[in-house]
């Protein structure tokens, strides 16, 4: 299977750092990812592994004193890490939109929901017309599009809901409104940061269905950040498992789920409860590591049941594993583990 479409978004060796009192923390450490049109990529890992930081880096919204210290982010081949603030603002919300975790705190409490959706259209001049004082119909055109998007994301009685405030919405409706803000400008890429974590299970399923529909109908590529491997397995066609700022395993969803190679991925899979199966959930022992004091070598080695002494040394590359070869979208199924190279120390 070859994928002829050129990559929409490419992260090349992306490194994002935050200076702290105990030294510089690499929240994202040399991440490589490729996203093509219509793909859904899942970015999975425990809290604090850097998955949300990847999304914020893509949008250039890392809050100071954090910064992108290295690597490139290519949007349709153009490096967007070097853009000016103004050029970057033209991309935010238009080419790349983001959905956040907690819908209530993400909507501005002081403005009407409809106006918040309309703002996206106005900021990017999506309904162009004659210049300012002469364009009487602009608001009406924008409002029409807002109602269209609200219906598209399944907000019933959009006309009345346009004039409601965020606190008058239910959690699910708030998340739909947020998705509507994201979709208003028909972005090429949707970044979703734990979009269902704050919602009830039934609402979760509806939101996931909605995102799948958006993906299928408009070919919007999606990066879904989640700590829920089960959700990612169901929704994404590619998975990248992150640990301590690095990708430890990446590949097509089927490969990663059916044939996990990294001990961390295996551990995550053992944490997923299955309906109808009487099996104890086995948590991964230990805690998420402190990024300021990472061990040498494999960051997972202190918690790894397969760890040997040599795991503490050197740097391990992502190695091709599995059967689907390098064509699987992100260079095939690869994992970063010494176990996969028969405990040989890398050269140098």
């Amino acid at each position: 299977m070859t994928d002829p479409s050129p990559p929409l978004l490419e992260l090349r060796n992306l490194t994002t750092v935050f200076p702290t009192r105990r030294g510089e923390v690499r929240a994202v450490d040399g991440v490589n990812l490729t996203l093509r049109k219509g793909q859904i990529l899942g970015l999975v890992g425990e809290s604090g592994c850097g998955k949300s930081t990847v999304l914020l880096s893509i949008l250039g919204l890392i809050s100071r004193p954090g910064r992108i210290a290295g690597g490139r982010i290519l949007l349709e081949g153009r490096d967007i890490t070097r853009l000016s603030g103004r050029e970057m603002r033209r991309i935010r919300g238009k080419d790349i939109a983001m959905i956040f975790q907690d819908p209530l705190s993400t909507l501005n409490p002081a403005f009407l929901v409809g106006e918040q959706i309309r703002e996206s259209l106005r900021l990017h001049n999506m309904m162009p017309g004659p210049p300012w004082p002469f364009d009487r119909g602009r608001k009406a055109r924008e409002k029409k599009r807002v109602l269209e998007v609200m219906e598209q994301v399944g907000i019933p009685a959009a006309d009345a809901r346009y004039k409601a405030y965020p606190h008058e919405f239910s959690g699910g409706m708030q998340q739909r409104a947020l998705i509507a803000i994201g979709l208003a400008c028909r972005p090429k890429i949707l970044l979703a940061d734990e979009p269902t974590t704050a919602l009830d299970v039934t609402i979760q399923a509806q939101i996931i269905d909605l995102m799948r529909r958006i993906n299928q109908e408009h070919g919007t590529a999606i990066i879904l950040v989640t700590h829920d491997l089960g959700l990612a397995a169901e929704f994404c066609d590619h998975l990248a498992v992150m640990y301590a700022g690095r990708i430890v395993e990446i590949g097509s969803t089927d490969e990663v789920i059916e044939n996990p190679q990294h001990p961390y991925t295996m551990g995550l899979l053992r944490c997923i409860p299955t309906v109808g199966e009487r099996r104890a959930i086995e948590p991964i022992p230990g805690n998420v590591p402190d990024l300021a004091t990472l061990p040498q070598g494999c960051a997972f080695s202190p918690r790894c049941e397969y760890a040997r002494e040599v795991c503490n040394q050197g740097f391990f590359r992502l190695q091709p594993v599995g059967t689907d070869g390098p064509a699987g979208g992100n260079g095939g199924h690869r994992a970063r583990c010494l176990r996969l190279s028969d405990y040989r120390l890398p050269e140098g």
Partner: peptide
């Protein structure tokens, strides 16, 4: 520092608009 300010930036709003419209009102 709140989430809705982050959203305003993610929508592509410029800093003056973020501060004077989204933040100041609250």
């Amino acid at each position: 520092r709140s989430d809705y300010i982050r959203l305003a930036r993610a929508k592509g709003a410029g800093e003056p608009r973020v501060v004077l419209v989204h933040a100041l009102r609250n």
